[in-house]
């Protein structure tokens, strides 16, 4: 595959959320506002790129039997870096994302890419793959975050969009709204992929 393809495949064709159905928990849990979606997207992309990079570098130094624990250790290290930096420099965001920051460790996208891609490919490809998957994940978080915030709170990035008389559909920022939004989004992407074929 061409190098560019390693990046772009994560955006739609192999999008981690829409097609591979990975990383669903944070996709729904933190997207009641768009800012949270962006924050989580950046955090996960950082971890994904760094862990893909390190794992593709050390892949020949790790005995096969203990590869999963080693990968998890690498991922957990970068997650902790994100957690500490966020708590120190972005306390508001860190509070809003809560336990979903440490839970990036068990985000299946990251271990999935480490195991399925970075442990078999060279550094450059792994880097691009991580970046593409991360951006693809972030796109979905931003879309769902924006839809839920506009419909559920009547704001976008905290700025009111409509007049005083607008009554937001509270349901959208509550848990059921998350499930409904992603159902419709995956449905639409299925439709789109079918049209493209």
């Amino acid at each position: 595959m061409k190098l560019g393809g390693e990046f772009t495949k994560g955006l739609l064709k192999e999008n981690p959320v829409l097609v591979l159905a990975l990383g669903l928990c944070p996709t729904l849990a933190v997207t009641n506002t768009m800012v949270n979606g962006i924050g989580m997207g950046i955090a996960a992309t950082f971890v994904l790129v760094c862990s893909n990079l390190v794992i593709s570098l050390i892949k020949n130094l790790v005995p096969n039997r203990i590869r999963i624990p080693v990968f998890i250790t690498v991922i957990a290290t970068f997650v902790t870096v994100v957690k500490l930096v966020m708590a120190g420099y972005f306390p508001g965001l860190s509070k809003a994302l809560g336990i979903f920051i440490p839970l990036i460790v068990v985000n299946c996208i990251i271990l999935g890419r480490a195991e399925g891609f970075a442990s078999k490919n060279n550094v450059l490809r792994s880097l691009l793959d991580g970046l593409g998957m991360g951006v693809g994940f972030m796109l979905i978080l931003i879309i769902i975050g924006a839809v839920r915030e506009i419909l559920g709170a009547g704001t976008i990035l905290g700025h009111p969009l409509f007049g005083e008389s607008f009554k937001p559909a509270l349901l959208m920022i509550l848990p059921p709204g998350g499930f409904f939004s992603i159902a419709i989004l995956i449905g639409l992407s299925n439709l789109l992929q079918k049209r493209l074929e």
Binding site: T77, T80, V81, L84, V85, A87, G88, Y89
Partner: peptide
């Protein structure tokens, strides 16, 4: 991580 923690801790 100990190293990173030392940097971010005071912050």
């Amino acid at each position: 991580l100990g190293f990173i923690n030392n940097i971010t801790r005071s912050k």
